[in-house]
């Protein structure tokens, strides 16, 4: 198992090299001239050229790339042209906010989607099967900003159960000391119950919004994969052996049905992480998605480059984790490495 993990880890290196090259080229190919943008509308051509030289943008591409790689090796992702802040620090501050929200959203959607999919598959054509179909269709048809706004309207404005959608904590709460960057975990680690509750309250609505959106693919995949497994030969054997229906459905069928669900989960997670910018906007969440969009609009290539690189690395890491999980669940995949 350990050698397998090392092999898989080694296999990620070429992907990472590819990612570095592609992010570099991609951000250079973006429309818009950063030097002109940075110099401002009133700047003379000479001033723009001067800025271009100071940013190193007048150098040929290979030279720029070498500088980029050297900086990267020192953990330097460059600085934002608009704020002047180092990109690495900005991403380090914002990534946990997005990751915490996305993970919680994923947990919410799994907690609903997986049991729903299993129940729908074990009782095809029943009321719960139809309910599953309606919920998944609705979840995928409603845009996240719409669900988010509806939830804010109902639970904050009408009912007053939820706090104002103003980011990770209310105005009067102070963030816990940074350990993991996840407020829920950090506040628990420092034994700060008040902050934990405060950040959980702030997280609830955006996490549910994301969860509802992510529900559809997970529930559908669970249902389809359970249906396939339930009609397989070994489930028939388990039934013929008179095993309790809980054992048949959970131990025999679900563990086998989990593999495609985990693959879907990985895709949904990476998709959510990049695409939850709308949710971040609605809930004023200081996440990485809104950061990247602002930088993109400003032709601020260093943050965009940093964002794409971070996402790609996360995606590679995620796929690695899923591979490992596969190996844990399915002994057959341990063999072919």
């Amino acid at each position: 198992m350990l050698t397998l993990m090392l092999k898989r880890l080694a296999m990620t290196i070429p992907s990472l090299i590819g990612v570095v090259i592609v992010t570099f080229l991609l951000t250079r190919a973006l429309p818009g001239d950063p030097a002109a943008y940075f110099a401002g509308p009133a700047a003379s051509p000479e001033a723009i050229e001067q800025i271009r030289a100071s940013l190193g943008l007048d150098q040929p591409l290979p030279v720029q790339f070498v500088h980029y790689v050297i900086d990267l090796a020192h953990g330097d992702l460059g600085s934002s042209l608009t704020t002047g802040q180092p990109v690495a620090a900005e991403i380090a501050a914002r990534l946990p906010a997005s990751a915490e929200l996305t993970l919680l959203g994923l947990i919410v959607s799994m907690a609903i989607a997986v049991p729903l999919g299993i129940l729908a598959a074990t009782r095809p054509g029943s009321a719960i099967d139809h309910a599953c179909r309606i919920v998944t269709t609705a979840g995928v048809s409603l845009p996240v900003f719409f669900t988010g706004l509806i939830l804010v309207y109902v639970f904050y404005y009408l009912l007053g159960w939820a706090p104002a959608p103003l980011g990770r904590l209310g105005i009067f709460d102070s963030p816990p000391p940074t350990i993991t960057g996840f407020y829920l975990i950090d506040s628990l680690l420092t034994g700060d119950g008040t902050t934990f509750m405060a950040s959980l309250k702030q997280l609830a609505l955006p996490a549910i919004t994301l969860g509802l959106f992510a529900l559809a693919p997970i529930a559908r995949m669970t249902r389809a994969s359970m249906l396939a497994v339930l009609s397989s030969d070994f489930v028939r054997t388990a039934r013929a052996c008179g095993l309790a229906s809980y054992t048949v459905v959970v131990t025999y069928a679900f563990r086998n049905a989990m593999l495609p669900v985990i693959t879907t989960l990985g895709m949904v997670f990476s998709f959510l992480l990049g695409a939850n910018v709308l949710v971040e906007k609605v809930f004023a969440w200081p996440g990485i998605g809104s950061f990247a969009v602002e930088a993109l609009i400003a032709s601020d290539f260093a943050p965009v480059q940093g964002f794409v690189l971070t996402m790609a690395v996360l995606y590679v890491a995620l796929n690695l984790a899923i591979d490992m999980l596969y190996g844990l669940i399915d002994p057959r995949t341990r063999m072919d490495a």
Binding site: S232, D233, F234, R236, T237, A238, R239, A240, C241, G242, L243, T247, T251, Y252, R255, N256, I329, D330, P331, R332
Partner: peptide, 29 residues
């Protein structure tokens, strides 16, 4: 089922749970 009346199937390779050791599958019964 399995106690008084039991059944053996054709295609034994697909009739067993692929991701559970055979010892555990017997132990389940």
């Amino acid at each position: 089922r399995g106690r008084e009346i039991a059944m053996i199937f054709q295609n034994p390779r697909t009739a067993l749970n692929p991701i559970r050791t055979v010892g555990k599958q017997i132990a389940d019964v």
